[in-house]
Amino acid sequence: MSSIFQSSIGKKLIMSVSGIFLVLFLLFHMCMNLVAVFSASAYNAVCAFLGTNWYALAGTAVLAFGFLFHIVYAFILTVQNRKARGNDRYAVVDKPANVEWASQNMLVLGAIILIGLGLHLANFWYHMMFAELVEAEGQYGPTEGAQWLSYYLSKWPVAIAYIVWIVALWFHLSHGFWSMLQTIGWNNLVWLDRWKTAAKWYATIVCLGFAIVVLGFAFEVFPLLDNCCSEAAAECATKCADACSCK
């Protein structure tokens, strides 16, 4: 048992399991975001719900570790793989037609996602969870998620950065999703193509979900049901949040 994580397949297993975790998290995050499409108050309620309580924190910690493992092992594996390639590189390289571009550029895509993640943490997580933890003061309160969305996404450079991020995420997921199943050995001749198709579907749904929110807030058409920028709505949201929070 001891050596399993020292073996190549063991290390890949770590990538795979942490990947599965992130895949599930993204699905959840996307669903949560979609709430903002319809109602600022509902979204803020969700934000408040996922504020500073122990299970949200525990979840965040696990998530952070998942990310960390995924990233650290990505680098460890890449370094090993470059070494395995030898010192001389091919002068001419031509990608075979049926090899996914994404599969050969997972680290680059991952790096873009990581940068995007930094942006995301600074924009939202810092204000909406971290601020609550340290009780810092911001332009909006930690539970005023919808306001933060409007505030940042109405700035074009931010919106564009998010779109780039989402595109990178799509490619990363389109390979990562079936690759993780392949790595845990949950694949065979029949399921090979099925999982690849499922991966594209999954990546598309998740990324569309994210993209809709970004674009909708960028063009200021969301939320559809209540306007998050109106004073009344903000008030209502705060009330809602108070009502829902488990303090």
């Binding site: 890949k12 090899v99 392949q182 001749l189």
Partner: peptide, 24 residues
Amino acid sequence: FGNCTNTGACEAECPKGVSIANIA
């Protein structure tokens, strides 16, 4: 030897078309 990242280049270039389902 390096770690497999499931790019599938091996299968694409294999002169005998051995499938990566074997890797799974």
